[in-house]
Amino acid sequence: MEKLLEVAGLKKYFPIRKGSLFSRETKYVRAVDDVSFDIHKGEVLGLVGESGSGKTTTGRLLVRLLKATEGDIVFEGKDTQAMTDAQFRPLRRDMQFIFQDPYSSLNPRLTVAHAIAEPIRLHGVATGKEVEERVGDLMNTVGLNPRMASRYPHEFSGGQRQRIGIARALALNPKLIIADEPVSALDVSIQAQVLNLLHRLRDEFGLSYLFIAHDLNVVQHLCERIAVMYLGKLVEVADRESLYAEPLHPYTQALTSAIPVPNPRAKRDRVLLKGEIPSPVNPPSGCHFHPRCQFATEQCRQVVPTLKKVNATRSVACHLY
């Protein structure tokens, strides 16, 4: 399969000032710390992690909503990090973003038609009557009645608003869609509607997704390959089947065993983690996960594990393997 996106050694450090107003000491939040992965054409890659793991920052770096501190982002063979903003702009058409909160990502003063038409007009893809037609088509595609085009966002429910967000993202026929927790604000019955829609669109338009979520159940439903992130680093990348059947990294094991299963008879050996995710300002030495890991050894406290391939489809960053 052809690679659509290649990410290598991606880092994002946010500076924060500690101490007094005049102190010179600057610390960094290592939100994304040396992350590498690829997305193939037509593939759905899931990026999972808990709050503060850096998954959203990673997504934003890809579309340059944030500038990376270091690392390469290669899209269709073109190195985007070397580009100026003007050079990057045409690529924005190919990479679109869907946000978590459909309430705050739509301008309340723009009608739906206007919101969906905005990217089309900005990129000069269509003019005049064509824009209107395109908006109608897009609304049909995402399951909204085109007669609602002149309404405002507040007149729609959460699920419908997320559909508007999706229509907007599709407006420019992108190749890659980065969806940041697109269903986590929605009720389960509505969530299933939107997941099915994303699934259908992918087949219809040959899209690739980077699907960012904290909910492993949702991720496994849509994604063929899943990357697990912890405190700014990828700890495991695997195909869906093997990740769920046999999670390798102790963090992935804890994460998969912590998902509540809607079956009261499910008897499970739960790996209950101690404590919570540490601060990314002062991450633990060696393996970032070692203070919460039951298998931690002296080596884990000192040496940072790198992501290594354990077989054709999966890699893990852990000294156990």
């Binding site: 099915n196 496994q220 998902i259 079956n263």
Partner: peptide
């Protein structure tokens, strides 16, 4: 309907059955 619209590792299907 609620149970059918849940994505779970056990019943993995390509299409979930949402409540319309």
């Amino acid at each position: 309907g609620l149970l059918d619209s849940l994505p779970t590792p056990e019943h993995r299907v390509d299409q979930l059955k949402p409540i319309p």
